[in-house]
Amino acid sequence: MRKAERVDYILQRLQELYPEPPIPLDHSDPFTLLVAVLLSAQCTDERVNQVTPALFALADNPRDMAALSVEQIREIIRPCGLSPQKSKAIKRLSEILLEEHGGVVPADMEALERLPGVGHKTASVVMAQAFGVPAFPVDTHIHRLAQRWGLSSGKSVVQTERDLKRLFPVESWNRLHLQIIFYGREFCTARGCDGRVCEICTTCYPNRKHPKETLKA
């Protein structure tokens, strides 16, 4: 199967499996999404969704969050891991949103990436899921599957994002990155599939004899 055929098949099959993929992180607006995505670094979405209700009950907007102490934030988010860094970042980004953006999360990639604790992936998620701006956030699932499906070399997440954006139509990006995540969690897991087990892997590469070794992000 040629790469163009793989791309068409993957688009079609994922759309059949996940026609309306939900956003995995519970949130009510761009600010709560931003905080939730920041907390999800090296943490499962399920754990984040368990923690954020208590945090957002105290502060679901930049002004209230900035009024909390780092220690108050840290105590709530401790189960998410990396709580010392994340609590400082959440408080400081809330202050910056008040100081520089009128208390509103900016719909601007560069402005988001300048916020403490917000890298390119987090900014991309917010742009895509809060503002509907086409983006292709690459997490570990997407990075792994792009290699198994022969869509990217996997040399870096930057390269994977660039390759996927080049291969897939821009109007599919926001939905497709979620579809790949859900498929990676359900069928093409890190240990459950080695490039020779799941439906998409076996369809794209029916003659693959050896496990597909994937480079980590």
Score class of each variant (00 low, 15 high):
142 I>Y: 00
194 D>M: 06
105 V>Q: 05
217 A>D: 02
135 A>E: 04
120 H>F: 06
113 E>I: 02
165 K>T: 08
139 D>A: 08
210 H>M: 07
34 L>K: 06
35 V>W: 11
150 G>M: 05
77 I>V: 03
201 C>A: 14
154 G>P: 03
113 E>W: 00
2 R>C: 03
96 I>S: 02
204 C>L: 07
180 I>T: 13
196 R>F: 04
108 D>E: 04
89 A>E: 13
18 Y>G: 11
154 G>K: 09
81 G>Y: 11
147 Q>Y: 06
130 A>G: 08
43 C>D: 05
58 L>V: 02
5 E>R: 11
195 G>Y: 08
120 H>C: 06
163 D>F: 15
77 I>E: 13
84 P>G: 14
119 G>T: 03
195 G>N: 09
113 E>S: 01
141 H>T: 01
204 C>K: 02
213 E>A: 12
35 V>M: 07
145 L>M: 13
150 G>N: 03
17 L>S: 00
184 G>C: 09
67 A>E: 12
140 T>A: 14
62 P>L: 06
140 T>Q: 08
92 R>P: 02
102 G>N: 06
187 F>V: 00
132 G>M: 05
59 A>R: 13
162 R>E: 09
174 N>K: 11
48 V>M: 06
67 A>Y: 01
177 H>Q: 15
70 V>M: 03
171 E>A: 09
6 R>T: 04
174 N>T: 08
179 Q>L: 12
90 I>R: 11
159 Q>D: 07
147 Q>M: 08
9 Y>V: 04
38 L>A: 13
32 T>N: 00
183 Y>I: 02
169 P>N: 08
185 R>H: 14
47 R>G: 04
61 N>W: 05
2 R>S: 10
212 K>A: 14
36 A>Q: 05
146 A>V: 02
19 P>Y: 00
13 R>D: 07
152 S>R: 03
188 C>F: 04
55 L>P: 02
85 Q>H: 15
22 P>M: 03
203 T>G: 01
88 K>F: 09
96 I>D: 00
204 C>R: 04
54 A>T: 05
216 K>T: 12
200 I>A: 01
116 P>D: 03
67 A>M: 05
57 A>G: 11
134 P>N: 12
195 G>S: 10
81 G>W: 09
38 L>C: 13
153 S>H: 04
13 R>L: 06
57 A>E: 11
1 M>F: 03
130 A>L: 08
191 R>I: 00
88 K>Y: 06
144 R>K: 09
63 R>A: 15
97 L>M: 10
27 H>L: 02
147 Q>H: 05
187 F>M: 01
43 C>E: 04
